[in-house]
Amino acid sequence: MVQRMIWNQTAYFGPGAITAIPDELARRGFTKAFVVSDQVLIDTGVTSKVTALLDAAGFAYEVYSNVVPNPPIETVQAGVAAFAASGADVLIGIGGGSPQDTCKAIGIITANPEFSDVRSLEGVAPTKNPSVPIIAVPTTAGTASETTINYVITDTQAKRKFVCVDPHDIPILAVVDPEMMSSAPRSLKVATGLDALTHAIEGYTTAGAFELSDMFHLKAIQMIATALPKAADGDPQAADEMAMAQYIAGMGYSNVGLGLVHGMAHPLGGFYSAPHGVANGILLAPVMAFNAASTGEKLRDIAAAFGVEGAASMPLEDARQAAIDAVATLTRDLGNPTTLREVGAKEEDLPALAEAAFADVCTGGNPRTATLAEIEELYRSVY
């Protein structure tokens, strides 16, 4: 079977990595940047850590700050128009998943204007041209959007989020600087960290996984299990490890897919604007339990990655349960919500949520095929 892996052309890691950006812009011959960020990051001075470097280098730029969580179609379309008016020739995405996803959509539609309705990008989009070049600077240790071929947009009219999968959207340069993540509040560090853990676990158990992706995902699980609690409480070394771990997970899952946790989390964002990482945290352990019998020895490996004593030698069923318990305990100890009520879900919406999850592109990668009724029951089990 032929396998494919797609990563950034270049990536920088570590404290101070953003200082490489001006030289990279000059080396690549760009003349003006269109900086995509959000107002919170601008107001808190995070975005200016990069724009100050551009100022010092005399590099022209324009900032687009009209980015909101779970970016809607309208924000993307406004961004496309603003980019066209700017005269820029490179995009710089500064932020978590929402700015990065908005940036990718702007770049793809600018290069492929026939997709200007945005909705037609859902699934594996048949674009012909690479995106406008993107430099991605994450400010959270979670989505790994800086190294993936995926982005997620919200159709507010239909109350749904949809996933776009397109090798043409991958940033040419990723700059993973943990100092860009240090000012995030604890709740955001927890949510994005659980998103990274979900990427690693779903990527490890997804139907498309193979040896190379397994290597990335298992290492990411090991790192996140140890680093996330400390990083959430402000430990700088653990924050460095989380920044790297979430990128490693992204290198894997972007190429092999995810599963039912993401398939069920996306509708919660579409219906209620539930933070994506929070929704993943609620669903991860229950979906692991649902999938357990279809994962071979992989939950044993996850239990060992979490440091469960004797995981390698205990009966398989016990090892599987140990992995599920380890994830549930971590989620609870971090203070993430554990029920759908806590993110505003309504019981009468559960059938519609299940239908949306059943149709989600991520659900097809789940190691166990789930029926519509089973998905609805899973929602009810955590309601």
Score class of each variant (00 low, 15 high):
181 M>F: 10
181 M>Y: 10
182 S>D: 07
182 S>W: 01
183 S>H: 02
183 S>W: 03
183 S>N: 11
183 S>V: 11
184 A>N: 11
184 A>E: 12
185 P>E: 12
185 P>N: 12
186 R>T: 13
187 S>I: 11
188 L>F: 02
188 L>R: 00
189 K>M: 15
191 A>K: 00
191 A>I: 01
192 T>A: 06
192 T>S: 13
192 T>Y: 00
193 G>L: 08
194 L>H: 01
195 D>C: 04
195 D>H: 03
195 D>K: 02
196 A>P: 09
196 A>E: 01
196 A>R: 02
197 L>F: 14
199 H>K: 10
199 H>Y: 10
199 H>R: 09
199 H>W: 12
199 H>T: 06
201 I>D: 14
202 E>L: 00
203 G>N: 10
204 Y>N: 13
204 Y>K: 04
204 Y>A: 13
205 T>P: 12
206 T>I: 06
206 T>P: 09
206 T>S: 12
207 A>T: 14
207 A>H: 06
208 G>Y: 03
208 G>R: 04
211 E>R: 03
212 L>T: 11
212 L>M: 13
213 S>P: 01
214 D>G: 11
214 D>Y: 10
215 M>N: 06
217 H>G: 04
217 H>T: 03
217 H>Y: 04
218 L>V: 13
219 K>I: 08
219 K>D: 15
221 I>Q: 01
221 I>H: 01
221 I>V: 15
222 Q>K: 15
222 Q>Y: 12
222 Q>P: 10
222 Q>F: 06
223 M>A: 14
223 M>Y: 09
224 I>N: 04
225 A>V: 08
226 T>W: 07
226 T>S: 11
226 T>A: 14
227 A>T: 03
227 A>I: 05
228 L>M: 01
228 L>R: 00
229 P>E: 09
229 P>C: 08
229 P>D: 09
230 K>S: 13
232 A>T: 13
233 D>A: 12
233 D>C: 10
234 G>V: 06
234 G>H: 07
235 D>G: 10
236 P>H: 07
236 P>G: 12
237 Q>R: 05
237 Q>I: 05
237 Q>N: 08
238 A>M: 04
238 A>I: 01
238 A>D: 04
